[in-house]
Design a protein around this nucleic acid. Structure first.
Lengths: 100, 100
DNA sequence: CAAACATATCTATAATTACCGATATATAAA
DNA sequence: TTTATATATCGGTAATTATAGATATGTTTG
């Protein structure tokens, strides 16, 4: 991992709500209600659930998640009108290897 | 580690110079000239060497290092008029355990 | 003690980020 | 094909951070 990407990841992890989102996504079934159309969390959690739980505006949370996805911390999967986000454990591990 | 401290660490790691400093301090003997009064890097590297290498003002780098020490990323040791800084591997590991 | 040196802190301005409401886009449902 | 729903993006203001120069503090040395 290069220093530029590591810094972008650091920026994502410099805000308590975004750090909290990373923590919530460790255990979706514990932290979120079940999805209505999907019977699992295989692709993570939909944006609106995360937004609701974060208690910030839709636009703010959407921007957070977009940036977290751009730097690789999260993986985005779209099904119809829903977007699901899950942790990208591979990139997280690369980041850990970089800073350790 | 609680989310507040993790966020402070994230802030420190959200700037390329500060990330770079963390990297340099992994291998002081490789990245810095030998100290004049001290014959080792056991307590890390003095502020002025880090400042010189970073290429930013003395006050800016001093503030960086101070914040990095406050959140636990670095350990500060003073000998007379010199301050030495080294990585705090214990806290770094705690941070890694938190985000993983 | 005075001068020199290393580092920290203060003050100020420029740049960036936080956050929202409004609006756009894209899909699904009626 | 309108309407509703989910998410993204735009435009703006408030808050925070970046960074520097000036100054203060503490230490060593002459």
């Amino acid at each position: 991992m290069d220093i530029k990407i590591a810094t972008e990841i650091g920026k994502c992890l410099s805000n308590p709500t975004r750090v909290q989102i990373m923590e919530w996504l460790k255990e979706p079934e514990k932290n979120f209600p079940p999805h209505e159309t999907l019977q699992h969390f295989n692709d993570g959690v939909c944006v609106s659930y995360i937004q609701e739980k974060a208690g910030l505006s839709q636009s703010t949370v959407s921007t957070y998640l977009s940036n977290m996805e751009k730097c690789g911390l999260l993986v985005l999967t779209r099904y119809g009108k829903w977007s699901y986000l899950k942790r990208n454990e591979k990139i997280i591990q690369e980041y850990i290897d970089f800073i350790r």
